[in-house]
Design a protein around this nucleic acid. Structure first.
Length: 630
RNA sequence: GCCGACGUAGCUCAAUCGGCAGAGCACCCGCCUUGUAAGCGGGCGGUUACGGGUUCGAUUCCCGUCGUCGGCUCCA
């Protein structure tokens, strides 16, 4: 699976979500639709699902033949393929994978029927008497509590086994009827990875083999091509090629260095957002990067979030922590004086840089880092203002994302988990309904993550779908019923009495680092003109055109365009090639004819060639494109 | 953090069994003065991630650290 798919699929609340997402993604690919209804059934009923499930069994047979002492566990179909987890005597090598794949083709060619048989738990135990993982699964099935992924089951399932050739597996199916239905030229083993038994890091680490399977070779080729395409657009590769950012072993893992070009794109993105914030009733604040331990005790971070916080430093015998969040500081601004109901709503915004400890293995380019800047804001309002405030912030969020050309969203509404929730139930109810109503009014399709909210409040998460049909969470709008209590936030109402305000935490782009990563991939590095670090490059054909090129460049700069002159003593063709690879929107070729006529010959990075035009005409065109944010 | 793979020039990658560390691109210099995706020649560039071990000799084999990649786990 590609990294972003992994991120997108990464479940918040256990395996059920994961499997639902798989079905969802497949549905998108085959139908192009985004309706979430009944998709689980659709994938599980599909021919591809049966092919992949059956390929997993065939693979398990091949692995068991290679390692007779192997213990096998589970092997479900997933998006784009399947996997199977094994407990093996030694690590698998790439050569093993080749051998296994070759043997799979032989087994398929044997045209074996898949035969289902329903058995009792005791029969199953006899069949799998040497397979401890299977025995554990059988126990789970017999008790009727959980399926093989650990999901609770409504009713006690029947226990069935499937056999083909020499291989028997505990399995509820479905499968194809004969191995001949698996196209041997449309399967491929992709990689080996470690995976904990039942996803529990305290349990044994198994070896997972990932494979892909399709109905025909063309589909397989298309899938492999999609993976190549994804690699080409990978923000880590483009970050290097376009000189946008880097990391350094010397500085430390998960800490980003923004280079001039990446820094400029980020600056432009931030400027746009800040202008919009000012135009939408936000006030900007600035707060420190560290705070005394007492603050974090009050906020509860030391109790609940400490494992993500860095060790404190001592200043004048006091402990100070680097901030993992901005909220306590904004709250202190709120608390700096007595607030009247007339002061509300207050919208305190800050591009706040936070540092969080992330386990080394999860760091990933710009998308998972240890230091990042949130476009953070905290909204404080009265109960009567709350519904409108939610409406406003959601629409503002959509406005901002659309400003970056991101037009497809998927929203998730996470609701209260009665087992763990702070604050009174009535407020939860009101808040959840306000969120729901705002989603409805905005006309956004959304999924409800029942019980998926954090203990302190319900929330909306907005995920963005990029050009490669992958989903990313950027925006979050969260109620917080915990911090106002902890910090005893109040405002004086019309009645002269203190009241508790609603507090809403929101980040629209999420973090600048992650957003930039998504943005780079969304445009495959070809930023719209308004964001492009270099908007136009002047390409003189011969050295004698340098003066004219510089003159034009100056003229364009006075119009506010970001322009460079390629002065190198290279062929024009070479300069064009380099400009295209740098994904510069406008190439302006100037030779004798242009210098003579006061024109520039425009070429676009798409290869399109509008040709010679007066300078004023080009300026008008560029300004039009910038205005339109294309 | 866990499993596995990897780390050689700014970038992409070679280097047979343990035997003088290489190529292309980039960069610098020179020639060419160019019409819509790479002109030609020359030069510079290395503590082979870092530390230790084995060996006459280590990019190569072993151990540790750091980092990267793919997963898993985690994600207030």
């Amino acid at each position: 699976m590609e990294p972003r798919e992994r991120m997108a699929l990464s479940p918040r609340n256990g395996r059920g979500r994961f499997r639902l997402r798989l079905a969802y993604k497949l549905h998108e690919i085959t139908r192009g639709g985004r309706d979430m209804a009944n998709q689980k059934e659709r994938y599980e009923d599909s021919r591809l699902y049966r092919i992949r499930h059956s390929a997993a069994h065939v693979m398990a047979q091949a692995v068991l033949e290679l390692f007779p002492e192997a213990k096998y566990t589970i092997g479900p179909p997933i998006e784009n393929g399947f996997y199977y987890d094994f407990d093996l005597p030694r690590p698998l090598t790439p050569e093993d994978l080749e051998k296994i794949e070759k043997r799979m083709r032989e087994i398929i060619a044997g045209k074996h029927d898949f035969v289902k048989k329903v058995v009792s738990a005791d029969e199953a135990r006899r069949i799998f008497k040497d397979q401890p993982y299977k025995l554990e699964l059988i126990d789970g099935l017999e008790q009727g509590g959980y399926d093989e992924y650990g999901n609770p089951l409504d009713e006690k399932p029947e226990i069935s086994i499937y056999q083909h050739d020499t291989f028997v597996d505990l399995c509820r199916g479905p499968h194809v009827s004969n191995t001949a239905e698996i196209n041997p030229d449309a399967i491929k083993l992709m990689k080996v990875a470690g995976a904990y038994w039942r996803g529990d890091e305290k349990r044994p680490m198994l070896q997972r083999i990932y494979g892909t399977a399709w109905e025909n070779t063309q589909q397989l080729e298309e899938y492999l091509h999609r993976l190549e395409e994804a690699k080409r657009r990978d923000h880590r590769r483009l970050g290097k090629e376009l000189d946008l950012f880097s990391t350094s072993e010397e500085v430390g893992a998960g800490l980003i260095l923004w280079h001039p070009k990446g820094g400029l794109v980020r600056h432009l993105a931030e400027e746009f957002c800040k202008q919009e914030h000012l135009a939408n009733g936000y006030d900007f604040v600035y707060t420190p990067h560290i705070g005394r331990s007492h603050l974090w005790e009050t906020s509860g971070h030391l109790k609940w979030y400490q494992e993500n916080m860095y060790a404190p430093m001592t200043i004048d015998e006091d402990k100070y922590y680097i901030k993992p969040m901005n909220c306590p500081f904004h709250i202190m601004i709120y608390k700096s004086k007595i607030r009247s109901y007339r002061d509300l709503p207050m919208r305190l915004a800050e591009w706040g840089t936070v540092y969080r400890y992330e386990r080394s293995g999860v760091l990933h380019g710009l998308l998972r880092v240890r230091g990042f800047t949130q476009d953070d804001a905290h909204l404080f309002c009265r109960p009567d203002q709350m519904p409108e405030e939610i409406d406003r912030v959601l629409n503002f969020c959509l406005h901002i994302l659309r400003g970056f050309g991101m037009t497809e969203f998927h929203a998730y509404l996470s609701t209260r988990d009665p087992e763990k929730s702070a604050g009174d139930e009535e407020r939860w109810e009101q808040a959840t309904e306000a969120l729901r109503a705002a989603l409805e009014r905005a006309g956004l399709p959304y999924d409800v993550d029942e019980g998926g909210a954090a203990f302190y409040g319900p929330k909306i998460d907005l995920k963005m779908i990029d050009a490669l049909d992958r989903e990313w969470q950027l925006s979050t709008i969260q109620f917080d019923f915990n911090l106002p209590e902890r910090f005893d936030l109040t405002y004086v109402g019309e009645d002269g009495q203190p009241h508790r305000p609603y507090m809403i935490h929101r980040a629209l782009l999420g973090s600048m680092e992650r957003f930039m990563g998504v943005l780079i991939e969304h445009y495959a590095g070809a930023f719209p003109v308004w964001l492009a670090p270099v908007q136009a490059v002047l390409i003189p054909i011969a050295d004698r055109h340098l003066d004219y090129a510089h003159k034009v460049a100056e003229q364009l700069r006075t119009e506010g365009l970001r322009v460079e002159v390629d002065e190198r003593s290279e062929r024009m063709n070479s300069k064009i090639r380099d400009a295209e690879m740098q994904k510069i929107p406008y190439m302006l070729i100037v030779g004798d004819r242009e210098a003579e006529a006061g024109k520039v010959a425009l070429r676009l990075r798409s290869g399109e060639n509008p040709g010679p035009m007066p300078i004023a005409e080009f300026i008008a065109r560029a300004k039009r494109d910038i205005e339109a944010r294309v």
